[in-house]
Nucleic acid binder design. Structure first.
Length: 357
DNA sequence: AGAATGTACTTGTCAGGGGC
DNA sequence: GCCCCTGACAAGTACATTCT
């Protein structure tokens, strides 16, 4: 191989929790007489069948309800951006508790009784409406959602946003929406038929409640005629938490290979169905990629000062994982600057800046 | 306020290039 | 120990607007 056929330019790529260094490779193109970094996509392949070359069009495969590694990485990146760019704020919960340095919120939406139509239908009529409503009512412009199946085959949703939203508000919106198909009524009918001891045996024990706690909840449920099923769960993440681990716990599940579909889902109506999505604001934020020589700083030196640095050397790349909240000094400043500068250029506005109250 | 609607723009997926 | 990146295509949704 001629030595001048390739050109290598040291490059780094940066996201809020890791920096990667690698070489961008240019190959000399004989036809154009210049170095190019272009790739071509194959549209078809030839396969030999009985001595005859047959042209086969390449088609996109279906996800089979499993989020691919690639998509999973992208999703993690989006959440890291969301978390990093969120401006900490003080919030008061529905229990009048104070949350200092609130960063992002994890919302889980479930169905209180057995799913009655296909997941695509639930996506379109329930989740979509829910997102639309929180968008307008709470100015939710930065978020990521994904769907997941519970063991009973019901779909449920996780949403992460940088907006603090009151638990009861979310619950009343979601319950109203799913009541369009009578989910709440079905729940309350089911619950109304239970005695206290039955309630405790089914739900109390499952949730590790004492009998007295069970009876409190039972009494409350009866008083409300079981009209407010606990379909919503929220968790706040504050600054400084090791968010990656936290997220993987709540936002991803170890993939059991047998994905549970319910009786309404089939290959037709789940094909190409979105398994996750993020707001447009976040979809614009990707990996920052730059040539190293474009900066005066010594990247390796700066990053190496991070306390809990984890370094991985791969064949063609070196990756440094860091927790930016543990960093100080110039390294912190430098990374902060690049990240924020990029986010600003891409028009990203954290909720607190976009909607000052 | 909540629901419906239309479309411009977005996404997921996969293949493929690179071979220091 | 996890490589990085990109483009192309199909087909979905985010968002503004309109309707009830």
């Amino acid at each position: 191989m001629e030595s001048n056929k390739y050109q290598f330019i040291p490059t780094f790529s940066l996201v809020p929790n890791k920096i990667t260094t690698f070489n961008t490779v240019f190959r000399f193109n004989d036809y154009y007489q210049e170095y190019r970094n272009v790739t071509k996509k194959k549209k078809y392949i030839f396969e030999n069948k009985d001595g005859v070359n047959v042209k086969i069009e390449l088609k996109r495969k279906s996800h089979n309800l499993k989020i691919s590694d690639n998509a999973y990485r992208t999703m993690q990146k989006k959440i890291n951006w969301l978390y990093y760019l969120s401006i900490p704020s003080k919030q008061i919960t529905y229990n009048k508790k104070l949350i200092y340095n609130f960063k992002i919120n994890f919302i889980t939406l479930t169905l209180p009784s057995k799913q009655q139509s296909c997941t695509r239908d639930i996506n379109e009529r329930f989740l979509n409406q829910f997102l639309t409503e929180i968008r307008t009512r709470f100015q939710v412009t930065n978020y990521v959602w994904r769907l997941e199946y519970q063991k009973n085959g019901n779909v449920h949703y996780h949403i992460v946003t940088d907006v603090y939203i009151d638990y009861f508000a979310l619950q009343s919106i979601w319950n109203r929406i799913i009541e369009k198909d009578g989910y709440v009524t079905e729940y309350s009918n089911k619950m109304k038929s239970l005695s206290l001891s039955e309630y405790h045996n089914i739900y109390g024990i499952k949730n590790k409640l004492s009998f007295s706690e069970s009876s409190k909840r039972y009494a409350k449920g009866c008083a409300e005629k079981w009209s407010r099923p606990p379909t919503v769960d929220t968790k706040s993440v504050v600054s400084g938490q090791a968010v990656a681990g936290y997220l993987s716990k709540y936002f991803s599940k170890s993939d059991d290979n047998n994905t549970i579909m319910n009786e309404f889902d089939n290959d037709d109506n789940t094909k190409n169905m979105r398994l996750w999505y993020c707001s447009r604001s976040l979809s614009k934020l990707n990996t920052i990629s730059e040539y190293i020589e474009a900066y005066d700083y010594d990247i390796f030196k700066i990053v190496s000062k991070a306390k809990d640095l984890k370094k991985f050397v791969c064949k063609y790349a070196t990756i440094f994982y860091f927790n930016i909240s543990n960093m100080t000094g110039n390294g912190r400043k430098w990374i902060d600057f690049i990240l924020n500068d990029y986010a600003t250029k891409m028009g990203y506005l954290p909720h607190k800046l976009a909607f000052k109250t």
